[in-house]
């Protein structure tokens, strides 16, 4: 009797564990972002316009915000090393929640190689950063693949993302320099926002946007506490133990070593979920 119960329990564990581990749909895919590049068809039009690539840290970066645990955050610099940005015309439209790769009809390299950008550049009302402007065949560019890679120079050398700024709460002010060396590879669908982007008309300029949601890391005091933006973020408190002489200087390796595993895992997921196209989510691809 006991043996049979144990057998049932054991087999149940074997079957249930993968379900618990898999949870919701996997945010990461082993499928390369540009699987269909070998079958790319060029647009059958001679008409061209300009495709402008912009990077946007949104008002969270430009104007600052209050984290879910009450820290007023302002950024001096948000260095990101953007790389290998490709715009696609796809049919059918790419769905980042599906297993299907981008079905490219036309692709345009918006950024070959990498470029360090500062998302906090400009004043609080600054427009998104213009990265490149390239000539492109007319049509609807409804998918975007892009990467964030480690920088090989500058202030953010060896890091993919470097956040510099100030955090203030109840009269306590801390400077911070938080560095992430995690490289990111995204495959995204169409921009989702007030307007539609990526529609290139003859002799006209259209825009495509890489968007970064840093509230995914720190949470947002303006959102309900049970909103995913708060339940899936770590806030700013976990960085406080790394403060020394009023300044927090920390990298991902140090965080991994010192944060409790659950908090670090939440941080890792939040970093992976930084990349968007406006409000549209992207699929996180493997980096190889």
């Amino acid at each position: 009797m006991f043996a049979k119960k144990s057998f049932i329990s054991l087999v149940s564990l074997v079957f249930i564990t993968p379900i618990a581990l898999s949870g919701c749909a996997s945010p990461e895919s082993s499928q390369p972002a540009n699987t269909s590049e070998t079958t790319v068809e060029t647009a059958a039009t001679d008409e061209t316009g300009i495709l402008k690539l912009v990077a946007n840290g949104e008002d969270f970066v430009r104007q600052g915000f209050i984290t879910k645990d009450g820290w007023q955050i302002t950024f001096d610099n948000v260095f990101v090393t953007l790389a290998d940005v490709i715009a696609y015309q796809t049919d059918p439209p790419y769905n980042p929640d599906s297993d299907k790769a981008i079905a490219s009809k036309t692709k345009v390299f918006l950024l070959e190689g990498d470029k360090i950008i500062d998302l906090a550049e400009g004043d609080i009302n600054a427009d998104p950063l213009v990265i490149t402007e390239v000539k492109a065949p007319t049509g609807m560019y409804n998918a975007l693949a892009w990467k964030v890679v480690q920088s090989d120079n500058g202030e953010s050398e060896d890091q993919a993302i470097l956040l510099k700024g100030k955090a203030e709460k109840e009269g306590k002010i801390l400077e911070f320099a938080i560095a992430f060396d995690k490289e990111l590879n995204y495959s995204c669908g169409e921009f989702v926002g007030d307007e539609r982007k990526g529609i290139v008309k003859d002799s006209a300029t259209a825009e495509m946007e890489t968007t970064f949601h840093f509230d995914h890391i720190f949470g947002d005091a303006e959102a309900p506490t049970d909103d995913a933006i708060n339940t899936d973020s770590i806030g700013f408190d976990p960085f406080i133990p790394f403060a020394k002489d009023g300044k927090i200087t920390v990298d991902l390796a140090t965080l991994k070593e010192n944060l409790d595993p659950a908090t670090y895992q939440t941080l890792e997921k939040a970093i992976a979920g930084l990349g968007h196209v406006g409000e549209g989510h992207c699929k996180k691809m493997n980096n190889d």
Binding site: S12, F15, I16, P18, S22, A25, D97, D99
Partner: peptide, 27 residues
């Protein structure tokens, strides 16, 4: 649906269904 299950999730769900029958029978 836009939110599709991965092949692994589909396979695990199928196996779970089969195990549900076996487990019930054993019980």
């Amino acid at each position: 649906s836009q939110g599709v299950y991965s092949p692994l999730q589909k396979a695990v769900m199928a196996i779970m269904g089969v195990w549900g029958f076996i487990g019930t029978a054993l019980y």
